[in-house]
Amino acid sequence: MATLTLENVKKSFGKTDVIHGVSVDVQDGEFIVIVGPSGCGKSTLLRMVAGLEAVSSGDIQIGGRRVNDVEPMDRDIAMVFQNYALYPHMSVFDNMAYGLKIAKVPKPEIEERVRQAAKLLQLEPYLTRKPRELSGGQRQRVAMGRAIVRKPAVFLFDEPLSNLDAKLRVQMRLEIKALQRALGVTALYVTHDQVEAMTMADRMIVMNGGVADQIGAPLDVYANPATEFVAGFIGSPPTNFIDGAAVGQSGGHRVGVRPEHMQLVGAGAGRLDGRAAYCEALGAETLVHVKSATGTQITVRQDAGHPIPEEGSEVGMDWDRENEMPFNAEGKRL
């Protein structure tokens, strides 16, 4: 249990800069999710915290101690890898115990800690099995167990659920979050799945091209995206972006409006006109995809009760001014 501080952390591989300076203060026991598109540097950032990748510049502190040059094992962290990285020839028990054995923890204590973790993760019946005799979800749990038994100050997760099927993912998501709460361990969790980010995070870091575009609580980020990228990345279906001039936004280069903040009205009655391209009726809601007069794709989300426009028909779109999110030419929120 500890705080984690990144101070203007940068990383370059040779001449390519991958992380352009990330700073964040993580509170003790906080669950931080790093989210962003593929290749934006999430894993690299996490691996720097783990000590698997050297920091090019900046500082990383765990529990107030600068750990830039500390070996992974001495950083008091535990990591869960995307493909679990279980030792294939060892039993579940030995997989979980390996780190403790190396740390020369006395045998009875190893036994005790592994049993506890196994109980917590419902792995007790499988302790003597080899990883290949387990299902994906069980392997995932073993990987978690291996992290738990070390009683680290910080948990690091690199897309731990991306190899699981959708249903299991939802279940494991809840389990991981509950576990982290129960243990009160600070956690850094990498994902590219925004639903995971929204549901699990105390605060999330939205990364874009090696930069932390925004750091904040999920709902704050959702309601107040700091950049055009964040507005487009967080939320599904994504935010609609409209030319500022077309809707009379002075100053705003582009304007973002979330699909649920738009209503369909008669052609000419709203603030923007377009042609309904196609509609996705999802039961509780309907997504209407509209092509505006200027050629922009716009999605309107409406409740099931509303009439669904004919495909190809002319429609108007309306929204409240307070729901507008204006961005400048650099994509920063005004």
Binding site: E71, M73, M79, A85, Y87, Y98, R146
Partner: peptide
């Protein structure tokens, strides 16, 4: 997989420990 070596490193295994274990 590389992750195996990394997992061992996080577990505190020295290179020769990784080799033998």
């Amino acid at each position: 997989p590389d992750e195996l070596a990394e997992a061992a490193r996080v577990d505190g295994a020295r290179p020769m420990q990784f080799f033998f274990d």
